[in-house]
Design a protein around this nucleic acid. Sequence first.
DNA 1: GTAATCTTTTACCGACTGGTAAATTTTATT
DNA 2: AATAAAATTTACCAGTCGGTAAAAGATTAC
Lengths: 217, 217
Amino acid sequence: MSKPKPQAQQSRASETRKRTRIQQEKEDLILEAALDVFANHGFRGATIDQIADQAGLSKPNLLYYFKSKETIHRQLLDRLLDNWLQPLRELKADGDPVSEIKSYIRRKLELARDYPRESRLFANEILQGAPRIDEELSDLKVLVDEKAKIIRSWSEAGYLKKFDPHHMFFAIWATTQHYADFDAQVQVVLGNVGQGDGRFEDAARFLDQLFVEGLAP
Amino acid sequence: MSKPKPQAQQSRASETRKRTRIQQEKEDLILEAALDVFANHGFRGATIDQIADQAGLSKPNLLYYFKSKETIHRQLLDRLLDNWLQPLRELKADGDPVSEIKSYIRRKLELARDYPRESRLFANEILQGAPRIDEELSDLKVLVDEKAKIIRSWSEAGYLKKFDPHHMFFAIWATTQHYADFDAQVQVVLGNVGQGDGRFEDAARFLDQLFVEGLAP
DNA sequence: GTAATCTTTTACCGACTGGTAAATTTTATT
DNA sequence: AATAAAATTTACCAGTCGGTAAAAGATTAC
């Protein structure tokens, strides 16, 4: 388990005292802009100027609120990971196995649809070897091990086929996040047909079928 | 369909005449080093100095063989995509449906195991919106549409369940490439147990089960 | 062996990057 | 209205980046 998360160090503006109205607004504005830029260009590919532009601020003004590029990035990741793991936390041992897994897949797919930038931010970080989130990943491991135990108990009780639960989680993560992370490829391959929400409904239908028939006995 | 691929423009060394022995050796050396660096840091995150260092050359010497960073990157992508699509090309309409799909999954997983850097190079490019490979992606679409037709005909003949073949391909790509692209996460979640090839055998077993039981009628 | 070609090194450049100092302007408090 | 604090701008800097010029050194062809 990791340390109780040291408050992300920001700039003078919010060091000790409570935030002013302007601080609240501008910090949110910056994080929103930064999410966009980091998700589309990666940490190294993003520049402070770009983020500042998109937020409608000057670079030094932005650095008045966050003392460095890395501070912004880290705060985004911290916020993200908490939300990202929520669906997994909600997987309950006392539910119906197939329903629980179906709900989990559905929730993950909704995250990919509604928060694609967060998904790509995370994907970028993992792709580069997760240099800035090793700590959070070990929290993830604890949670996954716990939930894997539940899945395995369902398996052994005959509610599911026999399989390695960890690889089931990998498969669910991969298939759902694929629609956010590889959107550029998905769009080309599917063409312009069904560009709207239909796409996600099709994906949901397919994944439901795949995992239910693939995992239920 | 795309144009007949203009020969990637390189530097003086290989503009018109045929390659010398040294050119062959050094170009391979550079591409090997560049693959490593690009895969781990993305296009923007990679620097020519880094690639040159890893290849044991000076920066100007490297630029004698490839006229720009982008030229190297493009040549890597060109080589990659051809190999990457091979397993899909080998999916034959006159084979046994379930065996064909099983073989395809197996081959894709082997690629992820044996060529993880290539997988990450590709993933990086798609994640950033595929700015440098839109042309190749439309070739991919043609191929996928063709193979999707085969899958659909198998479906309609009763050899497979009814489902959208495109989403099946997405699921196969996502689950197999996940082991290369998200390796950092996979390693943490699985822990140190079974660090060797066992991991890939476990993955193969799980994916076989998932897709066969999920797709066969 | 020598001339022509290919390869490598040295020295550099202009653009961009993350970040800072300090002065100025705006906002909140009284 | 005065003043203290907060917010913003202007001007800047040192390091890194991709890339080039030109000369020196090594190979090859004859």
